[in-house]
Amino acid sequence: MTASPLSHKALIATLCVGVAVLLIASVAVGYAPLDLGAAIADLAAGRQTLPALVLAELRLPRAILGAAVGFSLGITGAALQGLMRNPLADPGVVGVSGAAALGAVVAFYFGFSSAFALALPLGGLIGAGLSTAFLLTLAGRGAGTATLILAGVALSSLSGALTALALNLAPSPYAALEVVFWLMGSLSDRSLAHVALALPFMAVGWALVLTTGRALDALTLGEDAAASLGFPLRRVRLLVIGGTAMAVGASVAVAGAIGFVGLVVPHLMRPFVGHRPGRLLLASGLAGAALTLGADIAVRLIPTRPELKLGVVTALIGAPFFLALLRHLKVDGE
């Protein structure tokens, strides 16, 4: 696949419009009928009507989180693939997703989540924070990219094992089932409190990652050439790993594990940005937001009970799509 003639600004503008349309669609779609115009008018006027409450407490948080989680997964997937120069890297590879999931499961297992609603995402954030601190310590000591990946794999394995242990020792099958469902990833029944909890971490994560664009471009030539061009690689690693950990940790903490977005979206967007890793960041973030919003709308439109989990839908869309992409990659000789 080769670069599209579409200019970068036009691409970003198109993606922004797409995300905006999907945000509106996400707010408009739901199980209960909602007069969107009336709901917005009531909300703006400060009237505590049912439509205003549905909009503020259910639809808006779900749409905002869909966009923010998707943006986080897309941008960090692109950054990690650029940093590691490996098209198979995804946000899960640094182990923060697994650690965030474990943190949430621990909160659930010890009953904190029934004591107060935000215990689950807080547990996730603590898990993500601890694993981030571990990775940043390693990166700060000068660990190379390969060491960081291996540390991430070890973290993922340990988190997975401890999550399995929690499921194994769950007090009842229902508790285990609830944990498994949570792990599948979903945006339903999230509130503005979830948004307020996760969004600041995500925004800082995005900002950190976006500062590395030029360094990721230089890394196309390998670490030695990038360093000779004046880029401080240790700092770049810290920024990408730290930013990823914050954005993805916060995402998993509020939405559970949503697979394949971070892996597939950079591949989708790469031909449109001339394969430049730096330009890929924003494009992947926006495309990730669009994909996640679209999948979350699909979840609500597909008439199944219980509702399909978002992570299940993204994996069902993502996996076959990824296989198709791999065929192209082989043809391109990458």
């Binding site: 080769t2 670069a3 120069r85 030029r214 471009d217 230089a218 890394l219 196309t220 030539l221 390998g222 061009l229 004046g230 880029f231 790469r270 001339g274 394969h275 430049r276 890793p277 391109d332 990458e334």
Partner: peptide, 17 residues
């Protein structure tokens, strides 16, 4: 090595970073 299949002129342009 060139890790991503950038167009030739863009690879050269990395020297201007």
């Amino acid at each position: 090595r060139i890790h991503w299949p950038l167009p030739v002129e863009e690879v050269v342009a990395l020297g201007r970073l």
